[in-house]
């Protein structure tokens, strides 16, 4: 059966790779984001690769009015409807400390915006009784680190939300997968030095697609982050609070 992916944050580097992969295998894509010019380029690329439908639509995590329009657009799309959320923003901790008003936007981009959208679309998927929701969080959400804890907190909120949504939709035939990438070589991380296990976006995207096909619940990608984070999660807070990692 035909499948259409609504891709939120379609200008993200990882999202682009993901859109290509699903197009290569003949799925359709509805690219949602802020930079319409850039998304148009991804749309033509997806069409050339084999997506039967490749369209763009405006989406701003900070503007709930944009959500309803996307829902409306999906109403006549037949087949399986799936959603993949790549939206996120990561101001430096220093910037957030200097201007705490940035916290609200960070939480909106990484958590509450996408959560509100998913809550709106959930009944639609529930009614269809099929589809997959992929939510991209981060290993940064597993533990509050000194250098990155507002972003981490937003991602942690998103993880917990997705876990609850999985619980709700799983019983209706809709699968929800939480993705926790490690460091990825994208615009977000360009110029940061000494990133451990830096992965290419193509690798993350193909892990995500394989994980979604296999209905994984939580996916650490690349896989090395699963043991790494398992150890980091086990460090007692008494010790963790003194660490610089």
């Amino acid at each position: 059966m035909s499948q259409t992916w609504i891709i939120l944050g379609a200008t993200s580097t990882i999202a682009r790779s993901f859109a290509r992969l699903v197009s290569d295998r003949g799925d359709s894509v509805l690219l949602a984001g802020r930079d319409m010019v850039d998304m148009q380029a991804t749309a033509t690329d997806c069409a050339a690769r084999g997506a039967p439908l490749a369209e763009t639509i405006a989406f701003d995590a900070r503007d709930a009015a944009s959500f309803a329009k996307i829902l409306k657009r999906t109403s006549d799309i037949e087949g399986t409807l799936s959603v993949a959320v790549f939206v996120g923003s990561m101001p430096t901790q220093d910037a957030l400390d200097a201007d705490p008003s940035l916290i609200l936007g960070t939480v909106t981009d990484n958590f509450t915006g996408p959560a509100e959208f998913l809550t709106m679309i959930a009944p639609l998927l529930e009614a269809r009784g099929s589809g997959t929701i992929v939510g991209v969080g981060s290993v940064a959400g597993d533990r509050g680190r000194i250098g990155n804890y507002v972003y981490g907190a937003a991602k942690a909120g998103f993880h917990t939300y997705l876990s609850g949504l999985r619980n709700r939709l799983g019983r209706k035939g809709v699968h929800v997968m939480t993705v926790k990438p490690g460091t990825v070589d994208t615009a977000m991380t360009w110029g940061m030095d000494k990133l451990p296990f830096l992965a290419q976006p193509e690798k993350i995207a193909s892990d995500i697609l394989r994980g979604a096909d296999r209905q994984k619940d939580t996916l650490y990608t690349p896989f090395i982050w699963w043991p790494v984070m398992t150890v980091i999660r086990l460090i007692p807070e008494r010790i963790f609070k003194k660490l610089q990692i």
Partner: peptide, 8 residues
């Protein structure tokens, strides 16, 4: 620099 889009 490694721009990812025309605007950048």
């Amino acid at each position: 620099a490694r721009p990812e889009r025309a605007a950048a």
